[in-house]
Write a protein that binds this DNA or RNA. Structure first.
Lengths: 205, 205
DNA sequence: ATTTATGGATACGATATCGTATCTTACCCT
DNA sequence: AGGGTAAGATACGATATCGTATCCATAAAT
């Protein structure tokens, strides 16, 4: 696996990247079933020989795409925790979470993953762990270490974190997925503020 | 449209139902792209002639399936509101919501809808309105009429309802979609109780 | 009982799609 | 500049798929 990439020249790595980039657009916009290899080829140019050299089959191409986009998109879920006012930090995390979750790229990724989850269980699991779950684990860690100082009655930080993320999502994510209706940055801010308002109050002793 | 069904005999209606039932399993389990008309035929038996008589093409069959399953599954979101203790009613609504959302049938429906939303925008909109949105509207109505009596500081019932439904979902729905991990009835009950605990406290004056 | 309509079996046409193989061109290195 | 390698163009095989058309059996109706 690593061997495959070791003996690629700089140019070949670039070419591989071009193919991956073009294919990403197609697979994420049209889905796995509606994207064909010929389709990829028409967009990226070149020949089948080259395409199949870098990606032995359609599934491998899809897998590579999902892994790359997952890494890029989902890494935004766990920014370094800049210490600040507790309430403001929560609001920021919620707003950022919603912003990422409803970004065009994440929605496309989500759609593709949901559709193909049964056929790519490993990819699906990876997405789940590095996406929503990682985001709420990140929050849970924060809650765990700051609950006492802020007089919060939090017995299960993981559950509370999931509650918070869920409350922030509300129906907004559904709208984005089914309707293409994504919130503005100002809206995400207000939604996160409202969630923090309610949940901080709800958790307080 | 109605005309089409008027001149069907009793037997034909049954036959149509059989086809619809068998096709439903395939489309919901395998998705639109991986289900073929020949595939449907092999399961339901009979001939193409009959299949295409009742459903002029693949898209029409899919549409009919989604509409039928939507009606059946999503109607469970809005049970008649039996008056009772406010807190208990909320817990019941949350638990029921989570139960329906993570049922095998709803997960399959959700998967199919997410995957095909861009290609069947009307279906997607219908699902959104009669699914998640209807459930939270139902709750919003309840909150609107019971907030004062229960000394709740609820300025935006729709937002609060969405918060609550989201908090109940937490990451559970994601797990069901990506991992096939569905909660037991006892777990849904506990999750809903926890959400009510937090949010009622959060909304109280 | 004969005719008519209905449904089953299946052949068929047209196109699509994955992945391989062949042939030719362009590029690189010495 | 020339030989060798990588890559482009594209033909090809095998199969699949949608939807139509054809042929035959069976049931219903007169």
């Amino acid at each position: 696996m690593v061997q495959d990439e070791i003996d690629l020249t700089e140019k070949q790595i670039l070419r591989r990247g071009e193919i991956l980039g073009s294919a990403t657009k197609l697979f994420l916009n049209e889905g796995y079933g509606r994207t064909t290899m010929d389709n990829v080829l028409a967009l990226v140019g070149g020949s089948k020989r080259t395409l199949y050299k870098y990606f032995p089959n359609k599934e491998a191409l899809f897998t590579a795409i999902i892994e790359q986009v997952s890494d890029r998109v989902l890494s935004a879920f766990t920014p370094p925790l800049c210490e600040g006012i507790f309430r403001e930090t929560l609001i920021g995390m919620g707003a950022r979470y919603l912003q990422v979750m409803t970004s065009a790229e994440c929605i496309s990724l989500y759609r593709a993953m949901v559709a193909e989850a049964p056929h790519f269980p490993d990819l699906a699991d990876n997405f789940l762990q590095n996406g929503p779950c990682r985001a709420s684990q990140h929050l849970a860690e924060y809650l765990r270490s700051h609950a006492k100082n802020n007089r919060l009655r939090i017995t299960d930080p993981d559950l509370c974190a999931a509650q918070f993320m869920g409350a922030v999502r509300g129906n907004v994510h559904f709208h984005a997925v089914f309707n293409g209706r994504v919130p503005t940055k100002k809206e995400t801010q207000m939604i996160s503020e409202a969630a923090v308002e309610t949940l901080l109050n709800g958790w307080s002793k």
